[in-house]
Simulated assay, not measured.
Amino acid sequence: MATDKPRYTVSVDTDMFKQIEDFRFERRFQTRSEATAELIRLGLEALKKEQEEQKKAQKNKSSQKDIE
């Protein structure tokens, strides 16, 4: 099955491989690649949310100092 999507290979340890496989079967992804891409997407979303919360906390901290 040809695709125009960029491709790369990633190596993981046995434990992480099992976790990916468990995620794949629990969520009923047809391929390991689909499951891995979803895990990456979820991780990137979580990272973005964490960064936004940190910026918000810093902004609130600066606002607190201005009030004092």
Rank of each mutant, 00 (worst) to 15 (best):
M1Y: 09
M1E: 12
M1G: 15
M1W: 06
T3R: 08
D4K: 11
P6W: 01
P6G: 05
R7F: 04
R7S: 13
R7W: 00
Y8Q: 07
T9C: 06
T9Q: 07
T9I: 11
V10W: 05
V10S: 02
V10K: 07
S11C: 06
V12K: 02
V12N: 01
D13H: 06
D13I: 03
D13W: 10
T14A: 15
T14F: 11
D15E: 14
D15A: 14
D15F: 10
M16K: 01
F17K: 15
K18Y: 01
Q19A: 09
I20N: 02
E21S: 07
D22T: 09
D22Y: 02
F23A: 01
F23L: 00
F23T: 03
F23H: 01
R24S: 09
F25C: 06
F25L: 12
E26G: 03
E26Y: 02
R27Q: 14
R27E: 13
R28H: 09
R28G: 11
F29V: 05
F29P: 08
Q30F: 15
R32T: 13
E34A: 10
A35L: 07
T36K: 00
T36C: 10
T36Q: 00
A37P: 02
E38T: 07
E38P: 02
E38F: 05
E38Y: 01
I40P: 05
I40H: 04
R41V: 11
R41C: 11
R41D: 11
L42M: 13
G43F: 01
G43V: 00
L44M: 10
L44A: 08
L44P: 02
K48V: 12
K48D: 13
K48H: 10
K49V: 08
K49F: 03
K49E: 09
Q51V: 04
E52S: 05
Q54S: 07
K55P: 01
K56R: 15
A57M: 07
A57P: 02
K59G: 03
N60M: 12
N60R: 15
N60G: 04
N60S: 08
N60D: 14
K61D: 08
K61W: 14
K61S: 09
S62E: 15
S63T: 10
Q64E: 15
Q64H: 15
Q64A: 12
K65I: 12
K65G: 05
K65N: 06
D66Y: 11
D66P: 03
I67M: 12
I67Q: 13
I67F: 13
E68K: 13
